[in-house]
């Protein structure tokens, strides 16, 4: 299998593109995913990734790059969900459910109306083996922008994620950082469509981050571990998908889930013995 994969890698340009694109997506999704799960926004990631579909369809209609329409619809969806959640008695999970199912249904209808060679199945479930050079460079470019933005606003994102009440009391614009994160999430969701598709993006966003969360005590470490796991998951998923001739996107998701399950069993944060030891230490020291 290894010989087959690596000989394919040296021989086929499409496999090189697929490897670079999927690993970059895994790394950036893992990085931003740490904020998503710590802010309790896993469902929001799912909603945004589904909501970009009508944007993709409209982009085809207008003859512009799918990224533009998808980004607009992603931001609109996050704005709608936040607006409903913050200004009504409707809870945010309900607002998410209504918004994403509506946007997804609209997207499926619009895609069917568009005369394009793009297969709905590939949008929904990804087709990383078909990534062109231009898409790969776009993915790398967007990932760099997202990464730099996170570094530049790290302290504000840390504070508003950990203690939004304190941040608000300090006069920090908590909502601004919420929408900034939603915009970054939308960009990541749009580029991730290529590897795992809109349906499974949430897995790349939250599974590596959730796995990292089981082991770490600091956000920075969590982001690094999550990014590495995201990259590794994407690599292994591509490796299996290519060798076994099955859907790469689904392989990536399954590999991520297997790593999570193993981590869940052996993580020191989960084992009862470790927890009991820490509690006893704390009692002795206090």
């Amino acid at each position: 299998m290894f010989a087959n994969f690596f000989s394919g890698l040296s021989e086929f340009h499409f496999l090189q593109n697929a490897l670079i694109t999927s690993v970059v997506i895994g790394v950036i999704a893992g990085t931003i995913g740490s904020f998503i799960i710590l802010r309790g926004m896993s469902l929001m990631g799912d909603a945004i990734s589904h909501a970009v579909l009508p944007g993709v369809a409209i982009s085809f209609m207008l003859g512009v790059h799918p990224l533009i329409g998808a980004a607009v619809f992603g931001v609109v969806a996050s704005f709608l969900i936040t607006l409903i959640g913050q200004n009504s008695v409707i809870k945010s999970d309900t607002a998410i459910g209504i918004t994403f199912s509506t946007f997804l249904a609209l997207g499926v209808i619009l895609i069917a109306l568009v005369p394009t060679t793009t297969n709905l199945f590939h949008i929904l479930f990804g087709n990383v083996l078909a990534v062109q050079d231009q898409d790969m460079y776009l993915t790398i470019g967007i990932s760099i922008v997202v990464f730099l933005t996170i570094i530049m606003f790290f302290k504000e994102l840390l504070l508003t994620s950990f203690d939004p009440t304190m941040a608000k009391a300090l006069g920090i614009r908590v909502n601004f950082y919420h929408y900034l994160l939603m915009t970054l999430l939308t960009l990541v969701a749009v580029v991730s469509m290529q590897s795992v598709g809109t349906i499974l993006i949430v897995s790349l966003l939250i599974t590596p981050a959730a796995t990292a969360y089981l082991f770490v005590n600091q956000l920075k470490t969590m982001m690094i571990v999550s990014a590495c796991l995201g990259g590794l998951t994407s690599f292994l998923g591509l490796f299996l998908g290519y060798n076994l001739n099955i859907a790469v996107g689904s392989c990536i998701v399954i590999v991520g889930a297997i790593i999570f399950v193993i981590s869940f069993i052996f993580s020191p944060k989960q084992t009862l013995i470790h927890r009991r030891r820490l509690t006893n230490e704390s009692k002795i020291n206090s």
């Binding site: 710590l38 840390l158 994620s161 950990f162 203690d163 969360y213 770490v216 005590n217 600091q218 956000l219 470490t221 969590m222």
Partner: peptide, 8 residues
Amino acid sequence: VDRHFPIT
């Protein structure tokens, strides 16, 4: 306070 947040 979110006591499970990864922060020292």
